[in-house]
Each structure stands twice: as C-alpha cells, then as structure tokens.
C-alpha cells in the first residue's frame, strides 16, 4: 500500500473528503482525546457570549489530524517524515472538508507534498506540506 516513486510524478494530486457535516460531538471527542479543553471548542455559551464568536469551532489540530488521515491513507503507515501546516481559516460545526496532497518533489527515496484542506465554500482552512519515504 506504500507509494512507489516510479509511479509518481510532480503535480500528481490525491484528494479525499475528511469530514462531512462536522459534528460538535466530534469536536468534543477531540477535546477529550487530545486534552485541549479550551471552551472555545466545546462551550457554546462561553464562545458566543464571552469570546464573541458565532459558535464553537474546531481545534486547528483536529483539522490537522483529519488531514493526516488523508496523508497516511495515501503514503502508507509509518511513512511520514515531516508534516507541517498553517491554520488559515476557522472550521465550524457543519463544515465538510476536502484535503489534497500534490506531489512537489521526488528525491532520494522521499516525496514532498503540498497539502491543502478546503471547506464546502472553497475556503482554504489549512495549508502546509508533508514529506514521506517512498519505495523506489
């Protein structure tokens, strides 16, 4: 299931839907598993009345984690060597996200990707890179 460099070329694109209609409960699940209990993500009263946002929103790290599934499904288990992102827009309950990896460079048994995740309106919510070991 691992990728082979001989079958890849610069510009190849892999896309996957990583969440459909994000539920508040999934955000709660992420808070519990990660240990980040910031009320901005789970406490609608605090977030709307005190923090001034229209609703709770996802942890950036939840979006990075879901985008990570797209990457590991594509490159194979235990193959990632680097993964880094910027959070460019907030992700809200109800959002549907699609994540894309585009081959940027192939060298020395490694493949480098541009990584991007967009919401249902085409807004980029996460932008970054990844690097993985590939077979020859």
């Amino acid at each position: 299931m691992a990728l082979s460099a001989s079958k890849l070329k610069v510009g190849d694109v892999h896309t996957a839907q990583i969440v459909d209609d994000l539920k508040r409960t999934q955000i709660v699940q992420y808070a519990g598993a990660s240990g980040d209990y910031n009320p901005l993500h789970t406490d609608e009263v605090f977030t709307t009345k005190v923090a001034g946002y229209p609703s709770v929103f996802a942890h950036g790290m939840l979006t990075m984690g879901m985008t990570g599934k797209m990457l590991t499904d594509y490159v194979g288990d235990a193959r990632l060597t680097k993964y880094g992102v910027r959070f460019t827009s907030q992700v809200w309950p109800g959002d549907t996200l699609e994540a894309t990896a585009t081959v940027k460079e192939l060298k020395d048994g490694l493949v480098e990707f541009d990584v991007e995740t967009k919401n249902q309106n085409g807004v980029v919510v996460l932008s970054g890179y990844a690097e993985a070991r590939v077979d020859p």
């Binding site: 950036g60 790290m61 990632l80 680097k82 993964y83 880094g84 992102v85 910027r86 959070f87």
Partner: peptide
Amino acid sequence: HAEQHFEY
C-alpha cells in the same frame, strides 16, 4: 493556534 509542524 496558527501553525504546527512535526518532524518524525
């Protein structure tokens, strides 16, 4: 949270 980077 603005950015996060991992090196494995």
